[in-house]
Amino acid sequence: MNVNHNTEKDRLNFWEKLYLPEIARGLGLTLRQMFKKPMTRQYPEERWEPTGSYRGRPVLVLEEDGERCVACSLCSRVCPALAIEVQAAETTKEKERYPVKFEINMLRCIYCGFCEEVCPEEAIVMSKDYELIFTNQEDAILGKDKLLIPIAQLQDRLEFLRRFK
């Protein structure tokens, strides 16, 4: 007894079956939307500014005396996508270890934020940067030159972490 009772005939009432009043109603809806504030924006002229909770591309915090990162490689260990490669080296500073190489493969990164969560120094944080365009695979591997961001630009995220982490 596989009879479908949800036919148009069953669903529609008399006025709907007349068709023309419904057309008018639809046109009315369209007309009303034209006078509302648009949901879209004129990207790239108008850009969206995410809040501190947004997980954009992971970056390294750059302080006045250099990077915070001590190259412990925990981010690299915890990364489920194996996106991060760290090579440590020795310095004469008080924190005797620093990353001589820090690379994130943005093609592997899944923006999970585990690296930020595991970091003992709060040195790697998720930024607001969501614009990632590459034309080849090599460009997608970001080195220290692209990853180090001055701490002033990361205040929103650091504040968010202090409150909610």
Binding site: V70, A71, C72, L74, K95, E96, R97, P120, E121
Partner: peptide
């Protein structure tokens, strides 16, 4: 200082 210790 496990993050900077080689033994970790």
């Amino acid at each position: 200082d496990c993050p900077i210790c080689d033994e970790a």
